[in-house]
């Protein structure tokens, strides 16, 4: 912080076209990146588009790329960052304006999943669950759908497979449904064929990005891949199923 001042480089523009504009603003103790952006919006450039809501790392609206890392602006402290602080919208998604990307794909994907492979309770479900039974689900439920893992996932970001791959956040949602002890549906075929789980090459960028610290790859994706392998890629198990029937 030189002379109590912080330098921001903020992406300004529309529909992917734009430039990084420099702003120098006064530093305040405990400042987070969102404070800086809101200062710029209220004092320097009133037309800057930015999405935010709770300022408590719980709504997921202020997701952006800060010095090239997927981060929540309200959770990222200015004093921990190298200057100038480069702030960009999430680049994997179509750009709208300044720091705002079009994340409607998220809603579409979730809605589609609920329709096709939604929760389907067992007939005799006993809803008095023990701690052990909700352990896995609790982690997955922490997802705030900020989209940071989707932004960093190279399957979407680099290879643009939005039509074929539901991405880490929704694989986490699928893991929640699939591991729910009261659920009766089998989504493995859907996950393999529609959800595109095999496109994930378990390189773990999603896990690194998640502000809720969900172990997306280790706890959601790999266990799902193992279940898919049980069903489709394990010849011995497949033969055993043919002979003995059932869910071996």
């Amino acid at each position: 912080m030189k002379n109590g001042e912080v330098t921001f480089l903020v992406f300004r523009g529309e529909r992917e076209k734009g430039i990084f504009k420099e702003y120098k603003i006064p530093y305040q103790e405990g400042m987070v990146v969102l404070d800086g952006i809101l200062y710029i919006q209220s004092k320097l450039d009133g037309d800057m588009a930015v999405r935010w809501n709770c300022k408590a790392a719980k709504c997921g609206s202020c997701a952006a790329e800060i010095n090239g890392k997927p981060s929540l602006m309200c959770k990222t402290k200015v004093k921990d960052l190298e200057q100038p602080i480069k702030v960009e919208p999430m680049r994997a998604y179509p750009h709208i304006k300044d720091l705002v990307s079009d994340t409607s794909w998220n809603m579409k994907t979730r809605r589609n999943m609920i329709q096709k492979i939604g929760f389907s309770p067992k007939k005799d479900a006993n809803w008095r669950m023990k701690d052990q039974d909700i352990e896995k689900g609790r982690e997955f439920r922490a997802c705030i759908e900020c989209g940071l893992c989707l932004d960093t996932c190279h399957v979407l970001r680099e290879h643009k497979l939005f039509e074929k791959f539901i991405g880490p956040a929704y694989l986490t949602f699928a893991a929640y449904l699939e591991t729910h002890p009261m659920d009766s549906a089998n989504r493995l075929k859907w996950l393999k064929e529609e959800g595109g789980i095999m496109y994930c090459n378990i390189t773990k960028c999603c896990t690194e990005a998640c502000p809720e610290e969900i172990h997306i790859t280790d706890n959601a994706i790999i266990p799902l891949k193992e279940r898919v392998a049980d069903e489709f890629f394990d010849p011995i198990r497949m033969i055993a199923r043919k002979i003995f029937g059932g869910k071996s």
């Binding site: 790329e65 090239g68 890392k69 997927p70 960093t152 190279h154 399957v155 970001r157 680099e158 290879h159 497979l161 595109g196 095999m198 496109y199 994930c200 090459n201 378990i202 390189t203 960028c205 690194e208 990005a209 891949k225 193992e226 392998a229 890629f233 394990d234």
Partner: peptide
């Protein structure tokens, strides 16, 4: 380099992940 590191651009390729041969064989890990 698939990807070289998170948020780093990778070489252009026809990406199939682990959905096609030969990587699909990695499921034999068990």
């Amino acid at each position: 380099a698939d990807p070289p590191a998170c948020m780093v651009r990778e070489p252009k390729r026809n990406y199939k992940g682990e959905s096609a041969f030969p990587y699909i064989l990695l499921n034999l890990h068990r």
